[in-house]
Design a protein around this nucleic acid. Structure first.
Lengths: 255, 255
DNA sequence: AACACAGGATTGGATATCAATCAATAAGAA
DNA sequence: TTCTTATTGATTGATATCCAATCCTGTGTT
């Protein structure tokens, strides 16, 4: 494995993406060093990595915090994501072979089955993964990394919103995008991608204040027991609140 | 000022982009710590930043080196850059106001005058800057940062090639792109951007071996005297070799 | 209540030290 | 001689401890 600081940065990233560490949460060096049982310097390096990735913000002489993007940031991130995925779509419509289209359709089918079975958690994961698979088919590692970073930041954004709008009309967008692209209707596919993301960001209602709910120690505890990189992922999201979701209880946080 | 490690990372970046530190060059912690007169830890943090930016590569227990991208990497970087600039072009063709178009035209005009006067160095800088200005007009900081990183990596790539082909046919591409975009001929503009980059990467002949020519200490010395972030930039590129350039002596490393 | 000040806590950084690993040399066998 | 192996040196990864600068807070004064 690579360096310790990278491993810790990965763990922190996981915790942030799982919404266990919420925006604005203080990431104190001493506290983290005690939690991970490493020196402060290793923590510092991890925090630098997180900051470079846009998930943390370091303020001089004040310390590091989980990034707290503004509404403006959110729109820019989604704009960038749209731009990237549209570009990849354009490339794939030219260059993708039959095996690639098959993989995409297969992925959508797996998600559809997960929904049919009622396994919403799996459906969520597959829904997220679709975009990653999509970009992977471009066979461009640079683009993949850029896209992955943007996806991480959108996942962070979801910590800031009250997911109280209907995602269900987005469920079939993936299949439709594939269909349109295969038919060579690139322009329509790109518009759909744009609408897909735009409808998500329009639903955003960013709560300026976010309650930590979990101390860093509590938030990170599940990731520490299994030292090997297994997937603990107990994912105790703030579903406890009175269900603000309107009609649909199973929210597919696809985007 | 932000942290010391960021300042040093910036200096190292400058040195790499100025081709004073060439791909494969060892970036020893002890050596750099003596050069910058800081502890190894600060250097380590700087190297982490550089690695995250794709300009350095850290190998476990072996140290950091200036990144040495492969031909495959080069193509991927240019593909990504093309994708980003095409996307931005599409956005600008919709959203850019008259002031924006004026700024672009003005920039091209300044470069043209620099060429006319024979100030090739300035023309080079302006040629590089054009793309940055272009993306800045999208008013998307996230996209700007992604683009800037890609540009840095293309600049690094230029350390690896023998610039022995004719850039001159690319000189007016910028003006043509603006013209096409303003006329709403988006598709043609995007194709031109693609061709622009593609013609550059096609000219690449990557020399597997790169002679350091300068030790890190020599390479970094010019940046140290002026402690305040002035621009020393003596840029003693390897122009010393017998001019391999074919017909055109003044190579506009526009891309 | 408003302000100023002092103290504590935290970060940024330096130094010294140690273990682990890699590289290159030196020693030894075929 | 040449190939293999062992030793040594150098460098990295990481820790502990220490110090200065800065920020936050709480108290005391006006």
């Amino acid at each position: 494995m690579s360096s310790r600081s990278q491993a810790i940065a990965d763990t922190l990233t996981r915790a942030i993406l799982d919404h266990r560490l919420v925006p604005g949460c203080k990431l104190g060096e001493r506290e983290l060093s005690e939690i991970f049982d490493v020196s402060r310097i290793v923590i510092r390096q991890s925090l630098i990595r997180l900051a470079d990735d846009g998930l943390a913000q370091i303020e001089r002489n004040r310390g590091a915090f989980v990034a707290h993007p503004s509404m403006q940031d959110a729109m820019e991130i989604y704009d960038a994501l749209t731009l990237v995925e549209q570009g990849v779509a354009a490339q794939l419509s030219d260059r993708l072979g039959p095996a690639g289209w098959a993989e995409l359709r297969q992925h959508v089918e797996r998600q559809r089955q997960a929904v049919a079975v009622g396994n919403d958690a799996l459906a969520d994961v597959l829904g997220q993964e679709f975009h990653t698979v999509f970009v992977r088919l471009s066979r461009n590692k640079v683009m993949q990394e850029i896209h992955a970073q943007l996806v991480r930041r959108t996942t962070l954004l979801r910590s800031l919103i009250t997911a109280d709008f209907d995602y269900c009309n987005l469920l079939d967008d993936h299949a439709r995008v594939i269909e349109l692209l295969e038919k060579g209707r690139l322009k329509q596919a790109m518009e759909l991608i744009d609408a897909h993301h735009r409808s998500v960001v329009r639903g955003y209602i960013m709560d300026r204040q976010v309650f930590p709910e979990l101390t860093p120690r509590e938030a990170l505890e599940p990731y520490l027991n299994t030292k090997a990189g297994e997937q603990p992922k107990p994912a105790p999201r703030k579903e406890k609140k009175e269900s603000k979701t309107r009609a649909h209880a199973h929210v597919h946080a696809d985007e």
